[in-house]
Design a protein around this nucleic acid. Structure first.
Length: 122
DNA sequence: GCAATGACGCTCT
DNA sequence: CAGAGCGCCATTG
């Protein structure tokens, strides 16, 4: 009960991980979308922070999460962008010359939100 | 306990 | 159409 904020790797972040884990192969979702589906609308930044805490070898398909521009966010380590891009391309996601994917085509559209749709919002 | 940073998003100019 | 600024919250030093 209590004041346990659940800061463990499977705690409040688990909500975000649960959403990311639901992203089907060959599909992508934006940080803001994941945040909204996790019930943290507007906290897109926290999604990125949570994924960063996960690690590249995490069981969560972090590579399926991209920014609203449809591209992979620049990371501290050079070349990492290529890794995420390669993982997505391996799933069938194609990038254009700008290094962006067509969100209108690859964006994951869950029929049922992980959290209550609150009266069929959307 | 305060200050700065960060795998973002949206609006304004 | 492109660039810059502000907002949001959690983690780290």
């Amino acid at each position: 009960m209590g004041p346990m904020r659940e800061r463990s790797p499977d705690g409040s972040y688990g909500r975000i991980f649960a959403v990311v884990r639901r992203i089907p192969r060959g599909r992508v979702a934006t940080y803001g979308q994941v945040a909204q589906l996790a019930g943290l609308a507007g906290h897109a930044r926290q999604v990125g922070y949570a994924l960063h805490a996960l690690g590249a070898e995490s069981p969560v398909p972090w590579h399926r999460v991209i920014n609203a521009r449809g591209g992979v966010s620049p990371r501290s380590l050079p070349g990492w962008e290529r890794v995420q891009r390669d993982l997505l391309e391996r799933e069938g996601v194609r990038f254009d010359e700008r290094g962006c994917v067509a969100l209108d085509h690859y964006r994951w559209r869950p029929r049922r939100s992980p959290i209550s749709v609150a009266g069929g919002a959307r």
